[in-house]
């Protein structure tokens, strides 16, 4: 099969809205977006708290958090696998090889990215706001929502980076999801499988859709951030 032939077939698959393809895309979006939302809800305040409070081990925690931004997806997958496997501590929940398990694994991957960026951004903003907020009687705990809201446009970038990581990774979802057709097959795992099977049109089609989705989401967020910066100064 020639490369250009694969390309045409891939476009056909996309524009015929092939049901199998659509199902895979929908699952990918559902899993990655859920993971990003959960990770952001947890990581934004945690990052802000690390930025504002001084406690023993803070430096080590920041280092670990920064290092975990590079956590290999297969390792994250392995950890969640051990946790959820029959013999593992949460094995009784029966979550292994379900979309839920994939959400857990991707949340683990996204959390450090959002938390580390949130820490950095909030720390800088606190430097700028500290005297004024303290003058207004704002303690550090109460400053967290204020700072997160005022840093919202910078933080969106971090959340997007998290989404990029979640939607692009194969290792974690492959290990904990198992790439089961119609149940846990995502775009990335399908691309890996279809390529190894030699089904290049489907793999290529999925790849193009994946790229396009990431590009659209990033473009939207960039536009939003830029216009907000112009409006809010």
């Amino acid at each position: 099969m020639s490369g250009s032939g694969s390309f045409e077939q891939a476009l056909n698959l996309i524009f015929s809205f092939d049901p199998a393809l659509m199902e895979i895309i929908a699952l990918s979006l559902r899993v990655s977006l859920t993971a990003v939302v959960i990770a952001a809800v947890l990581a934004l305040p945690v990052g802000a708290a690390i930025a504002l409070f001084r406690f023993p081990g803070r430096g080590a925690l920041v280092t670990v958090l920064n290092a975990l931004m590079g956590l290999p997806p297969v390792v994250a997958g392995l950890m969640v696998y051990l946790l959820l496997s029959r013999a593992g501590p949460l094995g009784s929940l029966g979550l292994l090889f379900t979309p839920t398990a994939m959400v857990v694994a991707q949340t683990l991957l996204v959390f450090p990215i959002v938390a580390a960026l949130s820490r950095q951004v909030v720390e800088d903003l606190w430097e700028e706001y500290r005297e004024q907020l303290q003058s207004l009687g704002c303690n550090r705990l109460r400053a967290i929502p204020t700072l997160l809201w005022d840093a919202r446009f910078s933080l969106i970038t971090g959340v997007l980076a998290g989404f990029g990581r979640a939607s692009a990774e194969v290792g974690a979802v492959l290990i904990v999801g198992g790439n089961i057709d119609g149940v846990t097959r995502m775009m990335t795992t399908a691309i890996a499988l279809e390529t190894s099977k030699g089904n290049l049109p489907l793999a290529l089609g999925l790849g193009m859709v994946l790229l396009l989705l990431v590009a659209i989401i990033n473009a939207a967020a960039y536009q939003m951030g830029e216009s907000a910066k112009r409006r809010l100064g």
């Binding site: 706001y129 004024q132 005022d150």
Partner: peptide
């Protein structure tokens, strides 16, 4: 603290 206020040389205003 609530009975005092301070105005700084360069006003620090929130992004709102």
């Amino acid at each position: 603290r609530q009975r005092q206020a301070m105005v700084f040389q360069r006003p620090v205003l929130l992004r709102r």
